[in-house]
Amino acid sequence: MASHPVHAFAARLLGKSPAALDAEERRVLTKIEERLPIARDAGDVDDETATLGDRLADRVAAVGGSWGFILAFTLLLVSWMLLNSGVLPRLGHAFDPYPYIFLNLMLSTLAAIQAPVIMMSQNRQAAKDRLAARLDYEVNLRAELEILRLHDMIEHAVSARLDELLERRPAAS
């Protein structure tokens, strides 16, 4: 690995031997050698590894944390209360009269299920953020190494041109 000029260059710039480079640095060097772009979308990378449970947790969190859900759920609760306090008692068929014990049971069950699912989604988002930071680091490292490599190339070209001009200069008598 150290015999390749890019690795020697990176080892000189990063101050590490090729064996001491971490995975991101090795990936950047490989992409530089292959002359391929390194930028990747963190969302796409995460979606490639997401399981059905991961996608379901994200979907539940997206729906459960929306105004549409809040408004629909409020409408459902008000309807439940009106139905069991106003309409059904007059017909003698109220299945959950005030204090709405069955409604409280359903709400508690919903909260007990929804809270861990939302936490799973938040954990996934944190993992996505860490992945995005690693991918940003790779892109930044690649840009920095490329700039330093171009700087070295310009320095060598200028130095060679100066040497050439000095050789052409007539000797002073």
Results as ranks from 00 to 15, higher is better:
G64V: 04
Y98D: 13
L82I: 03
T109P: 04
D152N: 09
M81N: 09
N104D: 07
K128T: 01
T30S: 09
G64S: 03
S173C: 03
S108E: 01
H93W: 14
A23R: 02
D129G: 14
A127F: 02
S121Y: 10
R130L: 11
L103I: 04
A111P: 05
I118M: 15
Q114H: 08
D47N: 15
A143I: 10
A57D: 11
E34W: 01
D22L: 01
K31A: 15
S159T: 07
R27D: 14
V63T: 14
D136V: 06
L103D: 02
L14Y: 07
V28R: 03
E155Q: 05
D152F: 11
Y100L: 03
H4W: 07
R134F: 02
I154P: 02
A39S: 12
G15F: 00
E164N: 12
D96C: 06
D47M: 01
L75G: 15
R27L: 09
H7P: 02
H7A: 03
I101N: 01
L166T: 11
G65S: 07
L13G: 14
H151R: 13
R134M: 06
A172N: 01
R40C: 04
S3G: 12
V78C: 08
D163H: 07
G43V: 09
S121M: 14
D163F: 01
F95I: 08
G86I: 12
L82R: 04
L148M: 14
L82N: 04
A171M: 13
V87D: 01
P5Q: 02
I147P: 05
G64W: 08
A157P: 01
A61Q: 04
D136Q: 09
